[in-house]
């Protein structure tokens, strides 16, 4: 699903990523870990096409991202769900409208939008709060709204950058269970996290990054 071929990303004189090669298969659930500045975010930004590599090539689902033009980026992004640490919800609209945004952008009929949004909210356990403003929700609930928005379009690939960074361990476990359930139905998932205990508990493949290079690949013991 994801393949990096000798990818480097330089900011100024500094290498954020240095000749990274990696491959993530379809239906995998992978964690990215490492200190801040190790290149986790850069790696994800390259997959989201928020950045372009200075060198090398990124393939997602067999497509070379270097060949995607600016005008093709929106259509590509509709197939990649993203969850942010600060969840990036819009507080000028309610939960339902936040989750519906990707569907409206993709041009779904209102009836279809309603059905899918409710299915997604049901999945994250927030069906009763669709009319509320996200400001009124707890941190864990806000993050679950963010996840509902990321999966509502049924993307084959889901990225999450520190999705549990602001949550206590119990809520983190809930969120991870949610991700695992999506992975169970075939969604490829890549999660950046520096919570080592959590990574050990999950027992999934972990890619360790340090100074822009992959220094670990495998399940943490």
């Amino acid at each position: 699903m994801i393949r990096f071929d000798g990818v480097s990303k330089r900011y100024g004189g500094q290498d954020a990523l240095a000749r990274v090669d990696l491959e993530v298969g379809q239906g995998e659930m992978v964690f990215l870990t490492g200190h801040s500045g190790a290149g986790k975010s850069t790696l994800m930004k390259l997959i989201m096409l928020m950045e372009r590599p200075s060198q090398g090539q990124v393939f997602v689902d067999g497509r070379n991202l270097n060949r995607l033009s600016r005008s093709q980026i929106p259509y590509y992004r509709r197939k990649v769900g993203v969850v942010f640490q600060n969840h990036q919800l819009l507080f000028d609209r309610n939960v339902f409208e936040n989750v519906a945004l990707p569907l409206q952008i993709a041009g779904y009929q209102p009836a279809e939008v309603g059905r899918r949004v409710r299915a997604a909210l049901d999945k994250v356990g927030l069906l009763g709060k669709e009319r509320q403003n996200p400001v009124a929700l707890s941190g864990g609930e806000q993050q679950r709204v963010g996840i509902a928005r990321a999966v509502v379009n049924k993307p084959p690939l889901l990225l999450a950058d520190e999705p549990t960074g602001n949550l206590d361990p119990e809520l983190s476990a809930d969120i991870m269970t949610l991700f695992r359930q999506f992975n169970d139905v075939g969604v490829t998932i890549m999660i950046a996290s520096h919570d080592i205990d959590l990574l050990k508990r999950m027992g999934k493949r972990v890619l360790g990054l340090s100074q822009g290079q992959v220094v670990h690949d495998g399940v943490l013991a």
């Binding site: 005008s71 929106p74 259509y75 509709r78 945004l101 952008i105 993709a106 379009n153």
Partner: peptide, 11 residues
């Protein structure tokens, strides 16, 4: 946010 979830320039 709109650009991140795939909104085109026209949108």
């Amino acid at each position: 946010v709109v650009k991140l979830v795939g909104g085109t320039d026209a949108f």
